[in-house]
Each structure stands twice: as structure tokens, then as C-alpha cells.
């Protein structure tokens, strides 16, 4: 016997499917990222503290540069670094460029059409002169390129550094220990609660046999949020008890096995040279 309510329910719980897929994808993505960070590539071998300083230097240089040539050169260098770090070319490029047209592109759109002359064409809209401004187009291209370089640097850092190392290396930037501890525990338990949420959504999905209605959906979401909050509150108490049981007294201490080598110092010197070079060349080349 075919049941129309099944298809109706399927239509209504589409958001459920999407949420489940989103949760699963978040977990997968994190595991996938750690896989790349474990490879034996060039950047993976660099001490994470040095890596953070290297990337910070280049990000500052890229942010200060208004030269398309310099930014394009930096981007090519980043592609070479990704290749030396055994990152799949397609993954690296896709991760960088997927969001840029939507975010950076929308931001610069007005400057292209309302920019200063000369313009490729002019359209009068009452008091407004609308057209494709050449300086605006150049400025937008430089802006998008600058965003692409900075996003590529961030993607490259995340893909070649394990999250735990990345957090610990924030100490090199003088971030407070307690801040790093809270961040690392948040990252740790986000996954646990993602799994819990996944279970809750799946349990709900398996029992939806009729059209629940918007009001029922909202009530279920509110109840789930409450249950999850309750669970996380209880768990925070248990985790604190587990910390106390191992001698925690409120003072944060972390263990580091990092050892700086000549290769790390050379990499840092190279990154600083690139950053200074980019800043100097930006003054001469547009």
C-alpha cells in the first residue's frame, strides 16, 4: 500500500537530511584535514610555532601590498609551497576560491561600477553615472587577489598543521595559556556533541512516520537544544572532576615536544625575506 504521508514527511524533513549531511561533512572534513597534516611534506616538517610566525609575516606583507604583480607572485609561491607539501592541487585551489567570488566579489562590486573614470561605458541613472570603471576594475582585481593570497595562506597553514599543534603554537604569539586550553577543549568536545547531535537527528528521522508540522518541528528543535545543553552542562562537571582527579588546581600547564632545528630557522628567514621583498617591490611595481 502506498502512503502519501511518507512522501509528504520526506518533503518536510528535508532540513533534517541537510543537517545530518552537514554534521557528517564537518566531521569528515576535520579528519581529512588531519590526514594532510600528517603527510611528510615540506611545511608539515616545519615547527608549528615557526610556521605561525612565517605565515603571519607573509599575511602582513600581502595585506599591505597594492601591487597586482607582487600579489600574483606571492600566490605562485604559495602554489609551489602547497605542491612541496604534497597537498592535492585541486583541493587547495578549490578551498581557496570557493568562497571568494561570493564574499570578496560582492564587497568590491560597487567600486567597479561607481568608480572613477575612465570608464569603458557610461549609463546615466538620474543623478548617478554608472559604468565599468578601469581604476575600479583594477582595484577590485587587486583586492580579490589580496584576499585570495591571505585565504590561501590560512588554508595552507590549516591543511599542513594539526589543530592541536596550531593551538599550542599560538603560545609563540603570546596567547594566554587558559585561552588556548579553552579553545582546545572546545574543539575536542565539539566533535563529541556533533556525534550526539547526529544520533539525535537520526533517531528522530527513524521515527518520523507522518507529517510533523512546523510547530512540532520547532518544539522538537527547542527540546533538542535544551537536552544538548543539559548534557553538555553535566559533561562539563564530569570533565572538571576528571581534571581534579589528575591533580588540576587551576594552573594550566602544557606539554611540548617541539625542537627547533636549522631547517626551521631557514624557513623563517626565507618567509621574512619574502615578506620584506614583497613590501619593497610593492613600492615600485603596480
Amino acid at each position: 500500500m502506498s502512503c502519501s504521508c511518507h512522501s509528504a514527511a520526506r518533503g518536510r524533513v528535508g532540513w533534517l537530511e541537510r543537517t545530518l549531511a552537514g554534521i557528517a561533512s564537518s566531521i569528515e572534513q576535520a579528519v581529512f584535514t588531519e590526514e594532510h597534516a600528517r603527510r611528510r611534506g615540506w611545511l608539515q616538517a616545519v615547527d608549528p610555532r615557526i610556521k605561525v610566525l612565517m605565515f603571519a609575516a607573509v599575511i602582513i606583507a600581502a595585506s599591505a601590498s597594492s601591487s597586482f604583480g607582487v600579489l600574483a607572485g606571492l600566490y605562485l609561491l604559495l602554489l609551489a609551497a602547497a605542491w612541496k607539501s604534497q597537498l592535492p592541487f585541486e583541493l587547495f585551489v578549490r578551498r581557496t576560491w570557493v568562497g571568494i567570488p561570493f564574499f570578496a566579489g560582492i564587497v568590491v562590486l560597487p567600486s567597479i561600477f561607481f568608480g572613477l573614470p575612465p570608464r569603458l561605458f557610461d549609463v546615466s541613472l538620474g543623478p548617478l553615472q554608472l559604468g565599468l570603471s578601469l581604476p575600479g576594475l583594477y582595484g577590485a582585481t587587486v583586492f580579490v587577489m589580496r584576499v585570495a593570497v591571505c585565504v590561501s595562506l590560512a588554508v595552507l597553514l590549516v591543511l599542513t598543521t594539526r589543530w592541536s599543534d596550531l593551538l599550542k603554537s599560538l603560545r609563540a604569539l603570546r596567547a594566554p595559556q587558559v585561552f588556548i586550553l579553552i579553545l582546545s577543549m572546545t574543539y575536542r568536545y565539539v566533535f563529541l556533541f556533533l556525534h550526539t547531535m547526529n544520533g539525535m537527528f537520526e533517531a528522530r528521522k527513524s521515527r518520523v512516520v507522518a507529517r510533523p508540522g512546523g510547530r512540532e518541528d520547532r518544539r522538537w528543535i527547542a527540546r533538542s537544544m535544551g537536552a544538548l545543553l543539559n548534557r553538555s552542562f553535566k559533561m562539563s562537571g564530569d570533565v572538571y572532576a576528571a581534571m581534579l582527579a589528575r591533580g588540576f588546581t587551576g594552573e594550566v600547564r602544557t606539554y611540548s615536544t617541539y625542537r627547533l632545528g636549522m631547517a626551521d630557522w631557514l624557513a623563517l628567514a626565507g618567509a621574512f625575506a619574502v615578506a620584506v621583498g614583497a613590501a619593497l617591490v610593492s613600492r615600485w611595481i603596480r
Partner: peptide, 10 residues
């Protein structure tokens, strides 16, 4: 509850 650090070693 007991494994609250980012890695096993931690």
C-alpha cells in the same frame, strides 16, 4: 570525560 586534551599524548 577523561580524554579532554587535543591528543592522546597531551
Amino acid at each position: 570525560v577523561q580524554l579532554f586534551s587535543p591528543t592522546v599524548l597531551d
